[in-house]
Design a protein around this nucleic acid. Structure first.
Length: 156
DNA sequence: GCCAACGTTGGC
DNA sequence: GCCAACGTTGGC
């Protein structure tokens, strides 16, 4: 099993929004970066990912989602009315993909970016690398555990 | 709102 | 294939 981190702006889509969806499940659409897309395509059903809130007053990891469906073409790329529209992506030759995620846990106490930056053992994390802006990235098993520790919750 | 860092585009 | 210009991300 692999671990991941997925960013979303909570104004657009938050952990709470996901909690309100039927079966707490939703497609993770709108990724328009090749490296992030490649990570999406590497995800396996059952993989776990941190749900990260970005561009907000308190950026950080707010919960855990499970990959409920592996990568398939992102239909928002085909829709001229969508803000994620990309005419270079067609149903015959899709360029952008998405997975479905299911909310597993919302942290009572999130692992804030500030705390992540202050944690020495997380200095190598891709998230905190200078200039790193990827919205989907892998997380090592060790990083996963350390972040869980920052939330004060135990791994099951 | 600022700005550093990075990705993409397009002229040549 | 180079690279300047431009757009985007995302913390602050």
């Amino acid at each position: 099993m692999h671990h991941w981190l997925m960013k979303s702006e909570p104004d657009v889509f938050s952990v709470t929004d996901l909690a309100r969806r039927p079966r707490r499940q939703a497609p993770w659409d709108g990724v328009r970066n090749y490296q992030a897309r490649n990570f999406l395509r590497a995800m396996k059903k059952g993989d776990l990912a941190f749900f990260y809130h970005s561009s907000c007053p308190a950026p950080g990891v707010y919960g855990i989602v499970e990959i409920a469906r592996e990568a398939y073409p992102d239909p928002t790329a085909f829709d001229p009315a969508s803000e994620y529209y990309d005419p270079k992506s067609t149903p015959a030759q899709p360029r952008w993909f998405m997975v479905n995620v299911r909310l597993k846990r919302v942290f009572r106490s999130p692992a804030l970016l500030d705390a992540i930056r202050n944690e020495k053992s997380l200095r190598a994390m891709q998230l905190v690398q200078r200039g790193s802006r990827l919205s989907v990235m892998p997380v090592t098993a060790r990083e996963w555990k350390t972040i869980l520790k920052l939330t004060g919750e135990k791994n099951k």
